[in-house]
Amino acid sequence: MDSSVIERIIDKHHGEAGSLIQILLDIQNELRWLPGAALEMVAEKLQVPMSRIQHTVTFYKAFSLVPKGRHEINLCMGTACHVRGATRILEMIETVTGLQPGETDADMKFSLDTVNCLGCCAIGPVMEIDEQHLGKLVPDRTAALLKKYD
């Protein structure tokens, strides 16, 4: 881990304890996870107890304490997507990637997670890969879409 990255992010927020969540989010975006050493640096620089940082990072799903793959898949399992067949899309993604929700593959290509609503029910079933929304999914096309990522 490059500690200058963490230092730059903390400096950007003037090292204020009140900006804890923003700082953690920036680190998460930069490294795609929150390594223990990074949390220790944040605790020391912001003078925030480690127990509070643990409380915060385990509370919000946006934070990850394990490394994430290069491409993060968030499949919507909300009501609208569910009735339009999100379960079958999930089965297809599981077959293609070999992942269960919450897992990352060994070569760090994909991380798969399910979410409860992405907020664009009109184009359901929908998934999000690297913050790009892919809607009106059918199992066949989902498999083809996933093959485009490397």
Partner: peptide, 30 residues
């Protein structure tokens, strides 16, 4: 959790996770 943070000011123990999974946890280093 509050006694450790407010009276002792050590914060050796804190809450982790949320909702039905919420529990207390000691920070091993502290």
């Amino acid at each position: 959790v509050r006694y450790c943070a407010e009276v002792k000011q050590k914060s050796a123990v804190g809450f982790v996770e949320r909702g039905p999974n919420r529990e207390i946890s000691f920070v091993p280093e502290i």
